[in-house]
Amino acid sequence: MKFYTTSSTGDSGLLYLGHWINQYFHFPFRIMSADIGIDAEIEILDEDLHSNGLIIKAQVKSTQSPINANFSEYVEKDHIDYWSKLTVPVIYFKVDLKNNKIYHKIISSLDGIELTSSGNGNKRKIEFDLSKDLLDLSSKQKWLDFFKVVEYHNMYSYIEKLHDEIDSVVVDNVSFFQNEVIEELLEKLDITEIYFKKLEALKNLYPWKFGKEINDKIECLNEERRRKMDYLHREQQMLNYD
């Protein structure tokens, strides 16, 4: 049986990437047993090495030839489409085994990826910049910022703030208030719109984290907010009419 060096290069690059991620980022790195366009997954941990519940999928390509200039990778369009449809982020890695360097591109952002014609069909060209796309210690924070890991943990605090802010607006005796007081209460309710928008943005990033219970709770808060705003607007109109 003949051992092909291409297989050796691929395995070496995958193992080197896993070692690098584990040593410098302290993130678990798991090689996938069944490869359907994804070679491995990386689990994001916080500063205390606790799981954030976020998994990054990795596609890894390797080379024994030194990379000394900006370069491009050509990937089947179907692969890019598949990665874009996944509910978790995907990063494309290129491992330079000669120089012991790793370059990466976040596929989820689609930055630096353009459609081109190559060979027998359409492919995507992924452009790499040796300085910008080099995997180094600063990449960890860039990942956390891009995937908004910290923001995800604010989901429950946003819901709690919404509850407290909306609950603090008491409208039972609002008919005895002055117009200035009504304006103040309306302003408090207007400010809560920020938290609803933040929750909507998080839902777009992590749709699988927003189950029925969470969605129902957010909708109830939104309904209560609308009810109080409608009531205040009616009272305000009556005051202005008088």
Rank of each mutant, 00 (worst) to 15 (best):
D133K: 00
N122M: 12
F128A: 12
W143V: 15
I91C: 02
I102Y: 02
F71L: 11
K148I: 07
F93E: 10
K142D: 11
M1S: 09
Q237W: 11
L144G: 11
N154G: 02
N173G: 13
I67W: 05
S12N: 10
K148M: 11
R30V: 15
K77R: 09
L137G: 10
K217S: 07
S65T: 04
I159R: 01
S131L: 13
Y156A: 12
S84G: 03
M238K: 09
A40G: 03
I218C: 13
D48L: 05
V75G: 01
K94N: 03
S65E: 15
K198E: 12
D242G: 06
G112C: 09
Y103Q: 03
N222F: 07
K209W: 08
V169M: 02
T5F: 02
T63V: 11
Y24S: 07
S108W: 14
Y231R: 15
I80P: 06
R226C: 08
W20L: 09
E213I: 01
R234F: 07
Y156C: 15
L202S: 00
F27S: 14
E160P: 02
I191Y: 02
S139V: 07
E127Y: 03
H26I: 15
D78L: 13
E223G: 06
Y82Q: 08
S131D: 09
W208L: 15
G10W: 10
Y103E: 10
Y4K: 14
R30S: 13
W20C: 09
I194H: 12
N173I: 06
G211I: 04
